[in-house]
Design a protein around this nucleic acid. Structure first.
Lengths: 309, 309
DNA sequence: AGAATAGTGTCTTTTAGACAGTATAGG
DNA sequence: CCTATACTGTCTAAAAGACACTATTCT
């Protein structure tokens, strides 16, 4: 095992470690999840405006011991970078996101001062209501992700560990917490009020936020925060929350429908104290539009290898 | 040196190697550079239309021995990813590009079947006329890039080598070629007619081309192909070459000037057989526009950590 | 009725694009 | 003169945005 036995000075000559970190947004923390900082329950706050939340993981190792960090970890030899993002995200959140896209790669030499060089490929992800409502806690002993089991080494044994709670495996498997209890080293924070983050993760979060906003402006992503069916009013509320500004309902409706992605389900909302709204579903490929419209002229920047999970 | 002595099976347990590959575009190959494939001189072709060129490096090692590949190589422990791109690009082209931006990271497990895992961070770059006209060949013995000298190992000694000619150091330093001769393992190809490339580099080139095109549409980059001053006609010709379609001269002029980036130098072109055109210079930050225009609403996708060299 | 949001219609402003027409160099 | 490109003016179509107005539910 040459890697583990190398001294710190020898590690300087080793190839850099490759890790993946993910900024995962959701409109609300999932039920039962720990809430960071403000300590108030998500709905208890005086203002009912929608805000973005994201999960963080507390580091249990140096450097940045005790600090909050993005979920992530090193990539394994037989898994793609996206797979690493999904695996480490699932280890922290216990759910798979509805959307995942590569963000940027950070490889500055200042990232790990004395230890081995660390290159981080950052991803960003979205959790929709569908994903967050799914039952998060499988019965004890159920191996839902086989490759998570039976590995001998914790990934953060060597010095340049990134986050921490990936070490937690499934709650209960290590006996540290009772089955069903949330991992105490994972909590959700409002994107507005994040704690001090480890490494350069604050920069990564800021970049992911900018990416989410810009993508919301020219491409349909807001619907991924919601469930399979939704009203236009809800979609607009999400868009406003992401963009941080109000949007004219009439114009928003026209633009959204003109995209061709929204399919009227024929059903309507019930139980509101106002006129019930139509429910729409999202269709991936817009129908062929009337001749003369060659469809969207391709997004300004479409990352080629993208994956909608 | 645990890394070099590890067996192939042991390498499977090692962290992946990190390499950088760069797609570098230019309007023409630099003077004295080898021309790939078509073998004709760049101007000899019947059609004088502008096309894009990019440098490739022939591999001198397995896998893909003899195939052309993107310039690149592994990152060193004390250099940033962008630095690696610049260093390896300079090793192949002998010039620094005028623009460099990260493109995407490729880490698929199929990239290196049996050998150590390889993660490649792809960059794309632009060479302008200014950069290509610069004298490419320093006098023998001149150490213009100190850290390139005196290193003991060739980077591609271990198996998962990426490209090859980075090994060539400076022509003449290894005695293989006479000083002043171009490296025979480096050649420029028209982006239209590329040879079969090693690894998944064809995909990377396609992605870089798409990125160049989309960025040309919503942001000013075409000027980076040109020298410090240029006419609007030339800028339009470059834009047309990149986009692959003609652009109305009148409308292009208005849009280009409305961006606020172009400064009229007051001088004009001479020696043309038509009305002389005004010469413009590019200014990075547009002047404050009349109130009410809050400037561009930020590009659809602006990679945060970008570097204009 | 009143509150609240859904949904439609329409007008104005802005932007993109087509294209005619004038300007100025060299041959 | 002609040719070729530079540059200007103007009209049209499309898109974005502001905003009035109607519709339908619950309380």
């Amino acid at each position: 095992m040459p890697y583990e036995t190398a001294s710190v000075s020898e590690r300087r000559t080793l190839p850099p470690a490759v890790a993946v970190s993910t900024v995962a947004f959701a409109l609300n923390p999932p039920d039962g999840a720990l809430i960071g900082e403000a300590a108030a329950s998500p709905d208890a706050g005086a203002d009912a405006r929608i805000t973005l939340w994201l999960p963080l993981v507390r580091r249990t190792r140096a450097p940045f011991l005790g600090r909050w960090a993005l979920p992530g970890g090193p990539t394994r030899w037989d898994e793609t970078l996206a797979d690493t993002a999904l695996r480490t995200l699932h280890a922290a959140v216990r759910r798979d996101p509805g959307y995942l896209e590569q963000l940027y790669s950070f490889g500055g030499v200042e990232r790990s001062a004395e230890a081995q060089r660390l290159v981080t490929i950052a991803y960003w992800a979205l959790y929709g209501e569908r994903e967050l409502l799914a039952s998060p806690l499988p019965a004890a002993g159920t191996a839902e992700r086989g490759q998570d089991r039976g590995r001998a080494r914790r990934w953060d044994d060597p010095e340049p560990a990134e986050t921490a709670a990936e070490s937690g495996d499934r709650p209960g498997t290590q006996g540290a917490t009772a089955p069903g209890d949330p991992d105490p080293n994972v909590a959700w924070f409002s994107a507005d009020r994040l704690p001090e983050l480890a490494f350069d993760h604050a920069e990564i979060v800021a970049y992911a936020l900018a990416r989410l906003r810009s993508k919301t402006e020219y491409e349909a992503v807001a619907h991924r925060f919601l469930g399979p069916v939704f009203t236009l009013g809800r979609l607009r509320a999400v868009t406003e929350a992401v963009l941080g500004e109000t949007v004219d309902p009439a114009n928003f409706r026209r633009q959204a429908l003109a995209q061709g992605h929204l399919v009227d389900t024929g059903e309507t909302e019930t139980g509101t104290r106002h006129r019930p709204a139509r429910l729409y579903r999202f269709r991936e490929d817009p129908p062929t539009r009337p001749p003369g419209h060659p469809g969207r002229p391709a997004a300004p920047h479409d990352p080629a290898p993208r994956s909608a999970v």
